Amino acid sequence: MSAVIGLAACAVSSVFFGSMFVPIKSYDSRDGIFAQWMMSIAILLVGFIVFATTGFPGFYPLAMLGGASWCIGNATAIPIISRLGLAVSILVWNTSNCLVGWAGGRFGLFGMKAQVPASPFLNYLGLVFVVIGGSIFAQVRSEPLPIAKKTSRTSFDLENLNSEEKKALNTTESSDDGGLETEVLRPDKNLNSGTQRFFAFITAIVAGFFYGMTFVPVIRMIDNPQLYPFYPQDGISYVFSHYFGIFITSTIIFVIYSIFRRNQPYAPPNLFLPGMAAGCLWAVAQTSFFVANQHLSQTVTFPIISQMPGCIAAAWSIFYYREIRGKKNFILLGAAMSITITGATLVGLSKNIKF
């Protein structure tokens, strides 16, 4: 029964992680710092709901470090997506995330206890499939569509752009009804160039490392009761502390960003609700991840939840955003998804099946 709950939590987490950036992708988030701050507010609200429903289990400052690690990685997410596309971005950083999380749980790194599955062979074989699938995903050519929408703008919106941005942006005005309407397009810089994509790819790998470290403080506290006596043994008790670390770190990043921008951060009002929606999706997914870790193990959950969201994101990219086109890309994507799903299944079976 425990394995069934864990796998169900993996499914919920995968769907929500794979869909979390959909609410904000249709908007020009620019550097993504404001969008992340909105996400962090929603994450904190969901965390408090979990905190209340679990009977206020206590606050554990060390768990905040895991939230801070995730927030640092996520600060690069939107710029990466604007260069690689939704599906390829998630698939690349999740492959790095998978390796870091799997290695930490399997070999007991960073003070955690080693978690040996019932079938190490199936576990290793599944991981190999996952990595091969991730490498094929990286070869899929995604072409993110530029965001160019006409929206009613006030003078306040235009004042948020500094002089350099105003020169880089193409603006047109119309006066059909006497009001100001401005069409804001992306900067002239080609975000889909080889250089931009290369640096985005490297940044995605680094972001995956920070994502992979997010559970380390919590699992360390659970695995070492002699060092942390009377601490809860269920991961869900640490959710609020973990999410509070995300909010604090995101707020610090936003303040530093605002200072750097001379108190003119890019913070359009139309990103408020999409950012909150993305944060809610992530918070539900991460809470399910905590549940999955409790009923399975990090050795099993990380390969599954690190790769399956990429399949969900690929579906969004193909059928909704149409970023992935062409026969070759579809063949690569189909092969990668098949291999990845096979690997995730093998990893899941390795928990209880000896082979």
Score class of each variant (00 low, 15 high):
253 I>Q: 03
130 V>I: 14
142 S>W: 02
28 D>T: 08
339 I>W: 06
9 A>C: 06
199 F>E: 02
85 G>C: 09
172 T>V: 12
48 F>M: 08
129 F>K: 08
211 Y>E: 12
168 A>K: 10
84 L>K: 01
235 G>D: 13
183 E>I: 15
162 N>V: 11
136 I>R: 15
41 I>H: 02
217 P>R: 04
61 P>T: 05
44 L>G: 00
305 I>G: 04
239 V>E: 12
11 A>W: 05
190 N>I: 11
178 G>K: 04
41 I>F: 01
36 Q>A: 06
219 I>Y: 04
177 D>T: 00
101 G>S: 05
312 I>C: 11
309 P>F: 03
99 L>I: 11
332 L>H: 09
213 M>F: 01
115 Q>H: 07
295 H>N: 12
168 A>M: 12
210 F>G: 06
230 F>D: 13
60 Y>H: 02
42 A>R: 12
152 S>G: 02
197 R>E: 00
318 I>F: 01
267 A>N: 08
323 E>A: 05
106 R>S: 03
143 E>F: 08
332 L>T: 05
271 L>D: 15
260 F>S: 08
174 S>W: 10
4 V>N: 10
82 S>V: 01
58 G>V: 08
340 T>D: 13
320 Y>P: 07
137 F>I: 05
179 G>M: 13
318 I>P: 05
321 Y>K: 07
319 F>V: 04
72 I>F: 05
168 A>G: 10
8 A>L: 15
273 L>N: 14
288 S>R: 07
153 R>M: 11
104 G>H: 00
258 S>P: 07
73 G>V: 10
143 E>P: 02
248 I>A: 09
252 I>M: 10
119 S>Q: 14
159 E>I: 06
242 H>R: 03
284 V>N: 09
163 S>Q: 15
260 F>R: 11
329 N>W: 11
306 S>Q: 11
148 A>S: 13
217 P>Y: 05
301 T>C: 02
146 P>E: 00
200 A>H: 04
325 R>L: 00
280 C>V: 12
285 A>L: 13
1 M>E: 07
208 G>S: 06
142 S>M: 04
181 E>W: 09
251 T>M: 12
35 A>C: 05
239 V>G: 01
146 P>T: 09
62 L>P: 02
181 E>G: 06
162 N>S: 14
12 V>E: 02
341 I>N: 02
329 N>P: 13
58 G>Q: 11
63 A>W: 12
128 V>C: 14
190 N>S: 14
44 L>V: 01
56 F>T: 00
168 A>P: 00
264 Q>D: 06
350 S>C: 13
310 G>F: 04
293 N>R: 12
348 G>A: 11
342 T>P: 14
170 N>G: 00
212 G>W: 03
351 K>S: 08
291 V>I: 15
144 P>G: 00
82 S>M: 10
